[in-house]
Design a protein around this nucleic acid. Structure first.
Lengths: 255, 255
DNA sequence: GGGCCACAGTGTCATTTGCTATAGCGGCCG
DNA sequence: CGGCCGCTATAGCAAATGACACTGTGGCCC
């Protein structure tokens, strides 16, 4: 019954924001108690999607915004001739479907990489929330700016880096985000299935070349990317190889 | 005296927001009178940069935000080994240096492509503005989301399109934005000098290949890119060739 | 005027990356 | 069980793109 296209079912039981499981994640800055009380009042419920299901459909006009509570999503853009560009991967705390806030058609599709759970905010209520609580509105801008910054990084990778550098960059990005949000517990390894086809569509490489590059990195011991996990044994070395800035960015707020 | 690094001089005369020259641009949605009065109260002044000057320096911590009043800027990211990725071009109404609002180090550099004039907002005052006027704060999020959407488009171009498609895409993007903001007055032609080296660094191509692709497009009559102008004789045909969505996006707010 | 410099343009060759086809492997399902 | 399907892996070849070296041109400055 949980159809992806219809937006999944609203879960009966809902987690109160006061006991939000995201509060103790290392890379997230939790709202204070008062703010959480407000957010809880505006939250309409929760919804769940199974691995592989579509959360948002490109071209549709969304009426709800989401916050990712658990799981991992990917969002991508489809071209008419079937080409696909993965734009970003989404981890707990990320905002999903911000475009809905501006009454715009969705320009990308969102799909669950593993089972996921999302908090639901109807469009109007979300607007009210922003209007009545400037601090949260400010955090919203912050979140949008963070997403923008991530896309900038991706852009630098696609524009300036070689295939292997790109792939190393992506592995570091994913593992770091997973660790920050509690998706990965082991140090430097993320248990998650991302196929070579998905990597290819994210990095702008052909599937064959993706395969070749992946093997080269595996032989070099820089990135061990297997069917169900991504491991970066030496994050510093990988960052160096991919010419990334060493530091991890400041904790991000969430709603 | 107008040093780029020092942030240019603050212009003596300042244009009151009530008579902002951007109000009648086709692609911009002007704030109403009340809002403009608010904005005017928070605006600290104006600053000007000459063509080629640096507006913001990568790695610095900015204390001021800007709105572009006239002119065209480019923002780019520099890698240690000298590689450069141009992230976007900025037209009147665009927000410059949003990262300053979050007290973060700048991850990119901003440079003037032609003489430019910017409205200045000190960091704290900007914060106050957002806190006291939720509607403007909402518009701020909107602006950030629009920038994000632009970067998504660029990402699709770099990841999925061929050299010629990319270049066509960029030409259409630039000409469209210029027309929307009143920078271009003739239909389909933008008088602006963007060197082949800059195009190369934006599209992730080598300079030589950029040159060759440009000539091919010129011969095909799709895009006529010369030293001091970019012309797209048939926007619809160019859009089609580059697999772009036909419609122009809704008017964007500005502050 | 002469020299310098940034930029556009060209040729040649090297490298990266893409395309097509094929094989192996494991899960899933009738 | 057998067949189908999605994914990884490999090979051989083609095409796109990059690297390097060089020329021409126009603006600018002493």
């Amino acid at each position: 019954m949980a159809s992806g296209i219809n937006g999944g079912r609203i879960a009966i039981e809902r987690i109160p924001c006061m006991s939000c499981p995201l509060t103790d994640k290392p890379g997230l800055r939790a709202p204070d108690e008062t703010q959480r009380a407000w957010i809880d009042a505006f939250k309409a419920g929760e919804t769940a999607y199974a691995k592989g299901e579509t959360v948002l459909r490109q071209g549709a006009r969304a009426t709800r915004l989401y916050t990712l509570l658990s799981g991992v999503l990917m969002r991508f853009r489809l071209l008419e001739d079937g080409r696909r560009q993965i734009l970003n991967f989404m981890f707990p705390g990320d905002l999903v479907g911000l475009q809905a806030a501006f009454d715009a058609d969705l320009t990308h599709e969102v799909e669950a990489l593993i089972d996921a759970r999302l908090c639901v905010f109807p469009r109007e209520r979300f607007f009210d929330l922003a209007m009545s609580h400037p601090r949260l509105s400010f955090d919203l801008t912050w979140l949008a700016a963070r997403e923008e910054a991530a896309l900038e990084e991706h852009l630098v990778a696609l524009g300036q880096r070689s295939a292997r550098e790109r792939m190393t960059y992506l592995a570091v990005y994913l593992v770091q985000r997973a660790m920050d949000t509690g998706v990965a517990t082991e140090d430097g390894v993320l248990r998650l299935t991302i196929t070579q086809g998905q990597v290819a569509d994210m990095l702008g490489l052909s599937l064959v070349h993706t395969n070749r590059s992946m093997q080269a990195l595996r032989r070099a011991g820089l990135v061990i990317w297997t069917v169900n996990s991504i491991a970066v044994p030496d994050m510093a070395a990988a960052r160096e190889f991919a010419q990334m800035d060493p530091g991890s960015p400041p904790a991000r707020p969430y709603i």
